[in-house]
Amino acid sequence: MRSNIKIKLSVAGVILLGAFGYLAFAGMQKGWVYFVGVDQFMGDQQYATSQARIRLHGKVATEGFDSSAAALSAKFNLAGAAHQLPVVYRGAIPDMFQAGRDVVVEGHRDDAGVFQADVLMTKCASKYEPGSPHAAKAEKQS
């Protein structure tokens, strides 16, 4: 009787763990994206022709900034220390979005070399200080 329970328990455990493992694996396949800075994305050879989905961080450049909240789209250059990448984003514009801000975008590069983003996140600092620590951070990382 006793060992019977142990066997049942082990079998149930193995099935459950296997199912979770499979779930996690399958989830990882679709759900993971590389997260790099603009400079690395533009400078590193391995991303040079890549059109895979990726997440990038950088600063919104002042030149070429065109955002229309009413039209729900934004065109801007995502800038690092050395490189710039043209980005087209479609969707609701976050309130904090503007030139000079640190943002995270997710999407892929199209044939023309323009980054088509469908996720746009602005870093929301709890306090706003001109020249906040985030600005310093972007330079540090790049």
Binding site: A26, G27, M28, G31, V33
Partner: peptide
Amino acid sequence: GHEVTVNQSFYNKVVGPM
């Protein structure tokens, strides 16, 4: 050496069924 993030679909696909 590469930073990889998982997005919402990962959690929805794994944590959701659990």
